[in-house]
């Protein structure tokens, strides 16, 4: 067994996994705040990345301006989605809400294909990419940058939820809506805020992936890969989401290695997380850190 290759795979897995972690975190944010399972999470990445690409490639804006404009756009986008589509569905059964996000997902996927085509588009070169040597492993600098961005976002999340007023309001709402309301927290505003933050953070992840790998409709698959990550970590745990994302990232790469070496099935890279998902659901549906909901009769 080549240890070099293996540790390289683990490192690659961690880098991708950190991005999964960021997306999973923004997924859990929506779930915790408003009990909505968002199947359109991947489309947030997609929309954000395409908008940023459009501003940079078509309008020739410098990266920082395009990036900030994208974040501004995603803020409005998130609020509008929540207010127009999700707010009328408050109080409807879970099925309806899930289906609405599924509808949003295919709508925006198709819209993006219609507007920007089906082919992957590279971002205009922003940073010089070169190979960096980390502990004897070869890593592209762009990947390191994406890892750094993931870590920054995670740290920002941590600060937001433990120290800021709005973050605390959100946690209170997630804990008990009625009590939060009686304490003067505007629950509708918290819902809208959770969608906004989730959209913005996902867009950051989307732009990061776009800068590294180019923008394509494949980005929306991140929204699907989120499910193994969040189930592994526990649906309502932000820490779990981060860990779940990392584990899924590593698992993917290792599964691909095992597949290439021993099984020869092909495609394990994509499918392995879903086998893991079924196993977790059977053995420990609340994941590593999720709340064990016990119902007594």
């Amino acid at each position: 067994m080549e240890w070099d290759l293996l540790s390289q795979l683990v490192l690659n897995g961690m880098i991708v996994g950190a991005l999964y972690g960021v997306v999973a975190m923004s997924f859990v944010l929506i779930y915790k705040a408003s009990q909505v399972v968002n199947f359109a999470q991947g489309e947030f990445l997609l929309v954000g990345a395409w908008v940023c690409w459009w501003l940079l490639a078509r309008w020739g804006l410098p990266f920082w301006a395009g990036f900030l404009l994208t974040l501004g756009f995603m803020t409005i986008f998130g609020v509008l989605l929540q207010v127009i589509v999700l707010r009328p569905l408050i109080g409807e059964p879970v099925i309806s809400v899930i289906m609405a996000t599924v509808g949003l997902s295919i709508f925006f996927q198709a819209l993006m294909k219609w507007m920007f085509g089906v082919f992957a588009q590279p971002f205009p070169p922003i940073f010089r990419t070169e190979r960096v040597n980390v502990l004897g492993l070869q890593v592209q600098s762009a990947y390191l940058l994406s890892l750094a961005i993931s870590l920054v976002v995670m740290a920002a999340f941590g600060w937001f939820f433990t120290a800021s007023k709005h973050g605390l309001a959100m946690r209170a709402t997630a804990f008990d809506q009625q009590v939060a309301q009686s304490l003067g927290i505007s629950v509708p505003r918290v819902f809208a805020m959770s969608w906004t933050i989730s959209a913005v953070v996902s867009a950051v992840a989307g732009v990061t992936v776009g800068v590294v790998n180019g923008v394509s409709s494949g980005l929306s698959f991140y929204g699907i890969k989120v499910f193994p990550a969040v189930i592994l970590g526990g649906l309502d745990s932000i820490l779990g989401a981060v860990l779940g994302g990392l584990i899924v990232g590593v698992l993917e790469n290792l599964a691909q290695y095992v597949d290439a070496q021993f099984l020869g099935w092909g495609n394990m890279f994509q499918i392995a997380p879903f086998y893991a998902l079924i196993l977790i659901l059977m053995l420990r549906p609340y994941g590593l850190f999720g709340t064990q909901s016990i119902e007594r009769v």
Partner: peptide, 19 residues
Amino acid sequence: SIAFLREMTIGAAIILFLV
């Protein structure tokens, strides 16, 4: 892009009916 338009109408139909 007729294929994408079809997908979009499917998505829009789901959302509109739910709302």
